[in-house]
């Protein structure tokens, strides 16, 4: 065995990794299995509450995954995920009201709007210092809400009732259909996030997170890469909002730009682990399920308080989240 094969072999044994192609195949099969499971469950379960709660949980998987593309890989904290989400919601609302647009059109338009908003934010704030981007995103939510308040066509501050197109007959009802749509979006997002993570783009983002100057000197076009990440993440967050119009039929600024949504979309990747696609998924499933289950028993204030405290604990003690803790434990056992 040559020295090089020896090193590769050693590296593989060390991480216990199977070749990349095999891992991708397993991942793809897993995605298909999740989708199939969703279809089966919507046929078997009768309780509509399950669909509504499930929609919320899966929407958080999509939001957390979208947020993490920028916040986790590049380390650029976006404090206004609901600004993008809300823009997606209102883009869809506009299209439904104006032309009764079908869901795919609304999703595509929301994606474009989110990407453009991400580009604009990035272009204006990313050239100075990372912190400024984060600060600007805090104010972005106020800005987006102010704009919506001033658009009478979209209901202003009081909200807007809509008649979105109904679900196709084969879906077995609107709640079932919306759950499947959200599941498909979430699975597509996770696949996209994983692809970014293992691609040159993901390596570039992680490199610039560690050191922008070193990344730049290693040939990484840091500004362009950050802009792309802003656009992709913005598009994902907005797309996650578009189906809400078809799910709820009534929208108002308070829910489209809700603080709880922002808080969760940020806290879930940070608690689950922001370095890989697994973290946001785990964080979202865990946090959102607990919140759904507990929503009857504890007040929404207490809910926010608990999330806030847990967030501080993770940020302070386990910055790599649950995934980081698990990795540390298994590494220790393996060594």
């Amino acid at each position: 065995m040559s020295l090089r094969e020896n090193a590769m072999d050693w590296a593989v044994r060390r991480t216990g990794r199977t070749p990349r192609a095999t891992r991708s195949l397993v991942f793809a099969l897993g995605c298909l299995a999740v989708l199939a499971l969703g279809v089966v469950l919507t046929r078997m379960v009768d309780n509509p509450y399950v669909f509504f709660a499930g929609y919320v949980v899966i929407q958080y998987v999509a939001l957390a995954t979208g947020w993490n593309v920028l916040g986790g890989y590049a380390g650029y904290i976006n404090f206004g995920p609901t600004a993008f989400y809300g823009v997606g919601v209102y883009m869809a609302a506009f299209l439904v009201k104006a032309m009764g647009a079908p869901l795919p059109v609304a999703i595509a338009a929301a994606g474009v709007a989110g990407a453009l908003l991400g580009l604009a934010m990035g272009w204006m704030t990313l050239r100075v210092q990372g912190v400024y981007f984060a600060i600007a995103t805090i104010a972005l939510v106020v800005m987006a809400e102010t704009v919506i308040h001033n658009i009478d066509y979209l209901g202003g501050a009081s909200g807007l009732a809509l008649m979105p197109p109904q679900a196709p007959a084969w879906a077995g009802g609107q709640p079932q259909f919306m759950l499947m749509v959200m599941l498909a979006i979430a699975v597509a997002f996770v696949a996209l996030a994983r692809w970014i993570e293992i691609s040159a783009m993901g390596r570039g983002l992680r490199a610039l997170k560690a050191s922008e100057i070193a990344a730049e000197c290693a040939g990484v076009p840091t500004f362009r890469l950050k802009l792309i990440a802003c656009a992709v993440s913005g598009a994902m967050l907005a797309i996650a909002g578009a189906p809400y119009v078809y799910y709820a039929s009534f929208i108002e600024p308070g829910t489209a730009f809700s603080l709880a949504l922002s808080l969760n979309a940020i806290a879930m990747p940070l608690i689950g682990g922001k370095r890989s696609w697994v973290g946001p998924v785990i964080g979202a499933l865990l946090l959102a399920t607990v919140q759904q289950a507990a929503s009857v028993t504890i007040s929404s204030e207490l809910n926010i308080l608990v999330v806030g405290v847990v967030l501080i604990l993770f940020v302070a003690v386990a910055p790599d989240g649950i995934v980081g803790i698990v990795e540390k434990l298994t590494r220790r056992r393996g060594a």
Binding site: G75, Y76, I77, F79, G130, V131, A134, I266, A267, L270, G308, V309, L311, I312, V315, A316, P319
Partner: peptide, 9 residues
């Protein structure tokens, strides 16, 4: 930047 999340919490 990560400290921002602490202040946020």
């Amino acid at each position: 930047m990560q400290a921002l999340t602490l202040f946020f919490g």
